[in-house]
Design a protein around this nucleic acid. Structure first.
Lengths: 211, 211
DNA sequence: GTCTATATAATGATAGAC
DNA sequence: GTCTATCATTATATAGAC
């Protein structure tokens, strides 16, 4: 619970940092208290002494990461998801552990991760609404679903970063990858994939029958 | 290794089925041999007797799922990913275990999962190339990256199914969700998100400077 | 605060009876 | 083929010395 600023050399914070690294890399269940202790250069007993249990340590890691993410989200006026994500993706050296851990949270059933994603969807929904109101974005038949899809597409490079990096021959999430995906992503979000509405109209007709 | 057709009542296949269910639901490390045995209604010793080790059991589950997925991919002439996925997504009752397990494979570092995803990307790339050649799809500055993005967006509902379902108030991947996401997805793939190329042009300019 | 030693439970895997 | 009993290892967590 220590929250003194600039406490980065504390043993407690070093343990937390080690835990974040290993939870992010191997997942919660696959990470042992012993391995965290080793990574932090302390004994296993001390880890438990400081945090009570592995589960409580995880909760504190979750909270720490959420705080870290909020710090950056605050910096963006509009609460624009892609912008706050972009800030972190453009400074990978600093934010990699945070982003890696975020990916784990979204998959591992963390309560904090769920609430975080809900927030991201809300931010995205607002951004899309404003875009439509300003006339810069297309309207949609289902604003909430579109916000969910855009958000999940946004976190995909983090959640599936192992596959993403592997397919591009990179060792992990790199700035090269981020740069390379920028144009194709924007192309998709600008011109779409299909040149006309044949598929869309067909789907509209098909769904009309089912309702 | 038994491959006799209609062997569904075999103890061995029942154990494999139980393993697939639990690996998909809880992940490989979080699933114990004992819990698989219980799910299959046999003893823990028998599981090892049949498969040698937990790891070998996993390998056989992987192979089984890959075969199951290939079976359906073969049914589609063009090797269209969204079509073969759609086949399975439209018959969730039958393919849920397979799809759930696929999601795990893509995340858990399974070799078989990696090769499978590579195949899906290749199929998608071919489909996109043909679409461009036929004039029904937009061209792109980076065909491979676009294929990767479209593929990863395609498997996203499976990989992030827990979040996806939770945000739509569903207990898991349901046909209701699939139906509801159809139109917004096609809208995005038809009209995109942005109404003009302002963002895209800006990115093009910005990247020109960095090269 | 930090360690070592230990308690207790669960894990993957083996041995041998039937 | 299937079970029970068991081994060896590892896990989280505790106790107590320093």
């Amino acid at each position: 619970m220590r929250s003194t600023p600039a406490e980065d050399a504390t043993t407690r914070s070093r343990i937390r940092g080690a835990a974040i690294t290993l939870f992010a890399r191997d997942g919660f269940v696959a990470t042992s208290v012993r391995s965290i202790a080793e990574e932090a250069g302390v004994s296993a007993g001390l880890v438990i002494h400081h945090f009570g249990s592995k589960e409580k340590l995880r909760a504190e890691c979750d909270a720490w990461i959420v705080a870290e993410l909020m710090k950056n989200k605050g910096g963006v006026d509009e609460g624009n998801l892609s912008a706050s994500m972009q800030v972190m993706l453009s400074d990978l050296d600093q934010y990699r552990p945070t982003l890696d851990y975020l990916g784990r949270m979204l998959l591992d059933g963390s309560e904090a991760g769920d609430r975080l994603l809900d927030d991201l969807v809300k931010l995205t929904e607002t951004m899309l609404e404003e875009g439509v109101a300003n006339g810069v974005m297309q309207s949609t038949s289902d604003p909430y679903m579109r916000a969910v899809l855009v958000t999940l597409h946004g976190v995909m490079p983090i959640v599936l970063q192992r596959q993403f990096a592997r397919m591009l021959g990179e060792p992990g999430l790199t700035s090269t990858m981020i740069r390379r995906m920028t144009l194709p992503s924007l192309e998709l979000y600008t011109h779409g994939l299909y040149r006309d509405a044949t598929m869309l109209d067909a789907a509209r007709e098909a769904l009309k029958g089912n309702e």
